[in-house]
């Protein structure tokens, strides 16, 4: 993607987001006590200032010509890359869902194996050993040394 094109897209996005904040986001999601006389003292003031600044930066990105980046584009990975990104997103969502149910140790083991498998590691045995040992060691440290209440889940509880 050309650099100016990227800046233009960012500029449009910034302007659109600033507009959304001013028209909808701030009036609906920021609450202010009704008895405040001056806007400057209100909880609304700072978000409005930031939305204004965002619009200004958006305009800047639209109209100021960018200098070319000497670095190359991110290595294109095509459809396989997108598939792996979606897989990682699914792993993260499943991790969030399983954490309270299976417990942090077992969920971490599964997440480790799934991520290493998705990345197609050249050392699958080492990955499985790490997947088992690492969450257990971290559990031992955080639960027994640092006194953190690591989620245990409903099924297999560790000492």
């Amino acid at each position: 993607m050309a650099f100016d094109d990227l800046n233009r897209r960012l500029g449009v996005f910034a302007l659109a987001f600033a507009g959304f904040l001013v028209v909808f986001g701030i009036p609906n999601w920021v609450y202010s006590p009704s008895n405040i006389q001056k806007l400057i003292l209100s909880p609304l003031f700072w978000p409005y200032v930031l939305a204004g600044l965002l619009a200004l930066v958006g305009l800047g990105l639209l109209f100021v010509r960018a200098k070319p980046d000497p670095e190359t584009e991110v290595h294109p990975s095509g459809r396989a890359g997108w598939r792996r990104l979606v897989s990682l997103a699914v792993i993260m969502v499943l991790t969030m869902l399983l954490l309270p149910r299976l417990g942090m140790v077992w969920t971490s083991m599964l997440a480790f194996v799934a991520t290493a498998g998705m990345l197609r590691t050249r050392y699958p045995k080492a990955a499985i050993i790490c997947a088992i040992i690492m969450p257990l060691v971290l559990y031992a440290f955080f639960a027994h040394v640092a006194g953190v209440a690591i989620p245990q889940g409903y099924y297999v509880r560790l000492p």
Binding site: L99, F112, A116, L119, A127
Partner: peptide, 28 residues
């Protein structure tokens, strides 16, 4: 190897972030 290190980083981050406030929401 980086393809073992990155899953390890993921797990380390999950434990580390959770430990700050004992809150799964923070992991999200």
């Amino acid at each position: 190897p980086k393809r073992i290190l990155m899953p390890a980083v993921l797990i380390l981050c999950i434990y580390g972030v959770f430990a700050v406030n004992n809150n799964i929401f923070d992991v999200g």
